[in-house]
């Protein structure tokens, strides 16, 4: 356990130090949401209607943006070799790296979402629904994305490839995340069903992600 604790602390420290990407994801999130009204017009009723979808899309892109360096940095400086050799199972190592990444890039998105929701005229109930779906759904984005990060670890243009590999895999998360958030906003459909499925997707990705990523890393590092 001490090995994993040390890894968690190191990765979180790196994210907040100079050159770490902890808050750039939030900034990206904010910029993307700001651009939407320029494209669709300043109609507040329309923006409110599409608000949850916009915030979810922006959160999806912001989560992926920071992911491409998840394993690549460790690969370049040789740390990954030592992580692979360790007694601690690689699946757990990868999962801990994912948790550290989510705490420093995913969680700030969830915290920033209400403020950014104000810009799209979302009311308190819609905000609460949105924050809840993002809190439950962003871990799924991180843990699905890490599979792509592991596959692209040794490639030079990994960032772009990562997006192409991973975005199609996130379709279910997007569908149920936006469906649950919209259920609160519109009040037409029940919130519970899509939200429960979103929780299930997150839990499944917490298991599948580390196993697939660890398998990919073992293949890539030869």
């Amino acid at each position: 356990m001490t090995s994993l604790g040390a890894l968690l602390i190191r990765d979180m420290r790196l994210a907040v130090r100079v050159g770490g990407g902890a808050l750039i994801g939030v900034l990206f999130f904010l910029v993307v949401v700001t651009l939407v009204p320029f494209a669709v017009g300043p109609d507040l009723a329309l923006l409110k209607r599409i608000g949850p979808a916009v915030l979810w899309l922006a959160a999806l892109l912001a989560s992926l943006l920071a992911l491409d360096r998840l394993f690549a940095v460790d690969h370049e400086d040789g740390s990954l070799d030592l992580l692979l050799m360790s007694k601690t199972p690689l699946e757990l190592v990868v999962a801990v790296k994912g948790v550290a990444h989510w705490l420093t890039t995913g969680l700030p998105l969830v915290v920033a979402a209400p403020l950014i929701g104000l810009l799209l005229n979302l009311d308190a109930a819609a905000q609460a629904g949105l924050v809840l779906t993002l809190l439950v759904g962003t871990p799924a984005l991180t843990f699905i994305g890490m599979i792509g990060a592991a596959i692209a670890v040794a490639l030079r243009r990994g960032g772009l490839l990562l997006a192409v590999l991973v975005l199609p895999l996130t379709v279910p998360v997007l569908i149920f995340g936006v469906a649950a958030a919209n259920a609160v906003l519109l009040g037409a459909a029940p919130f519970g069903t899509p939200f429960t499925i979103l929780c299930a997707l997150s839990l499944a990705s917490l298991v599948v992600g580390p196993f697939a990523a660890a398998a990919a890393l073992r293949q890539e590092i030869e």
């Binding site: 890894l7 602390i9 190191r10 790196l14 770490g20 400086d77 040789g78 740390s79 030592l82 992580l83």
Partner: peptide, 29 residues
Amino acid sequence: EQAHYLGHQDALKPSLSVAENLKFWAGFL
């Protein structure tokens, strides 16, 4: 698991201090 491997790369993080770098690997290994 019983070996130390000193490769070409140093497995160090430039933004961490010297002691933090060593402390991490000591804690992890």
